[in-house]
């Protein structure tokens, strides 16, 4: 699916990623975690192809990302970026329709009519009633749902999420990740999410990649990766790890110093 080989990345002359190699498995939800400034968003930008690594290569289905045309790549891979959409004057429906851009020719036409697809995306994100409102009339949480609906109509095989739950309350956090997971299962998508919240990562991800000091500290299922020792090592803080009473996944309890 996605293969990262010996990637080095310098940002402003400073090495951020150091000889990083890993493979992402198809039809899985991958979480990228790690402390602030470790290069999680940089890594996601490399995976999305908007930035090129200083050396090494990232490939999708065996083809280097840089060999895809921008539109061809956008048909395979979509990004839900940090911070969401700006409060623009477009209506919700217009913005969601923009997700079809990679499929349109120079005249903005497509061979088939995709209004059904757009209706469906609006429905499943609970945006049907808001579809004629403009973005500047929506709350941040609503705009984030519009952004996700736009990603949906892009019909990608891979979705990259950059801290999708920032600024959302816990209700919307769960709703958003539930939607992503449901959709991922229906379509067999590959999802890569940069997450700040370790507990959400443990609940939703099949595999977790821990980024630390420019390299990968650990990668695997949440149960195998998340340990008190690793967290102490990476985040320099003591935690207790308990089992979630319902799902059985590891959950992290913070521990203030005595």
């Amino acid at each position: 699916m996605i293969n990262v080989r010996q990637v080095n990345m310098l940002v402003g002359g400073r090495p951020v990623l150091n000889n990083v190699s890993f493979d992402l498995e198809p039809c899985r939800i991958h979480g990228i975690i790690g402390p602030n400034g470790v290069g999680k968003s940089t890594l996601l930008q490399l995976l999305s192809g908007v930035r090129k690594p200083s050396s090494g290569e990232v490939s999708l289905d065996g083809v280097r990302l840089s060999s895809y045309s921008r539109k061809a790549l956008a048909r395979k891979l979509a990004v839900l970026q940090q911070g969401g959409l700006p409060p623009a004057g477009f209506t919700v429906r217009q913005v969601v329709e923009m997700g079809r851009f990679p499929y349109q020719n120079w005249f903005g036409d497509e061979r088939e009519d995709h209004s059904m697809l757009i209706d469906h995306a609006l429905q499943s994100m609970g945006l049907a009633e808001l579809s004629n409102r403009t973005l500047d009339q929506l709350s941040g949480g609503e705009r984030q749902r519009v952004a996700l609906a736009k990603v949906m109509v892009q019909e990608p095989e891979v979705i990259l999420l950059d801290e999708p739950t920032t600024y959302l309350d816990i209700g919307y956090q769960v709703q958003l990740l539930d939607t992503v997971r449901q959709w991922q299962r229906q379509r067999g998508l590959t999802v890569v999410a940069v997450l700040h919240d370790l507990n959400l990562a443990a609940l939703y991800c099949d595999r977790i990649l821990v980024l630390h000091k420019g390299g990968i500290a650990a990668m695997g299922a949440p149960l195998d990766v998340l340990s008190e020792a690793l967290i102490r090592d990476v985040y320099l803080t003591d935690v207790s790890i308990v089992k979630h009473p319902v799902t059985g996944t590891p959950q992290i309890l913070l521990q203030p110093s005595p």
Binding site: R70, A74, V79, Q81, L85, M98, G99, F101, Q154
Partner: peptide, 8 residues
């Protein structure tokens, strides 16, 4: 960024 991700 959004524009780039949509293939521009």
């Amino acid at each position: 960024r959004h524009a780039a991700h949509l293939g521009i």
